[in-house]
């Protein structure tokens, strides 16, 4: 490499590193705002603002889903396996909503500590499998219990 090319290489490297540094610092300072949702523990620890619209994410607790007989009102609990948050939602749930499924709810915390959701999104995990395998795995888990 000639000295001229070397100099240009250094300039280019400093452009790339400099812009990465700037973006990195901006994102570091915005860290909490980039997170799409709060976990159940963060809400239980009072890290989430009360009264403004936030999202909470977690797993739907097994056996916690209760549907009203006369309306679309559903109540369920969300957990991150440490703390729980109770959620109430009126509306149509996504197809993937079920107990043990990860979901994200948008809404507000009310005074009683119950999360009033206005939108519920299902979070899909990175695991894919054919239905037959899922069934045999489930059967095995039942057998182990």
């Amino acid at each position: 490499m000639t000295p001229k090319r070397k100099k240009r290489l250094i300039i280019i490297l400093s452009i790339v590193l400099g812009s990465s540094l700037i973006v990195g610092l901006v994102m570091y300072s915005l860290n909490q705002n980039i997170n799409l949702f709060y976990s159940a523990s963060q809400i239980a620890n009072g890290e989430a603002p009360v009264g403004t619209r936030i999202r909470v994410g977690g797993m739907v607790v097994d056996g916690s889903v209760k549907r009203a007989s006369d309306s679309l009102r559903v109540s369920f609990a969300l957990t991150d396996y440490e703390k729980q948050v109770n959620v109430v939602f009126t509306g149509i749930l996504p197809d993937l909503f079920r107990e043990g499924q990860g979901i994200i709810a948008q809404g507000k915390m009310d005074e009683n500590g119950i999360f009033q959701a206005i939108e519920v999104l299902a979070k899909h995990d990175e695991n894919y499998m054919p239905p037959e395998i899922a069934e045999t795995m489930k059967a095995k888990q039942e057998a182990m219990k």
Binding site: I12, I15, V16, S19, S20, V23, G24, M27, N31, I34, N35, L36, F37, S39, G57, I104, L121, K123, H124, D125, E126, N127, Y128
Partner: peptide, 26 residues
Amino acid sequence: SLVGLVNIPIIKYSVEWWNTLHQPAT
């Protein structure tokens, strides 16, 4: 395009660095 290169690792690791709706890498 060189300045924008910083976005590539952000796309790749966004699902690990922050809570996202998009699932992590399979």
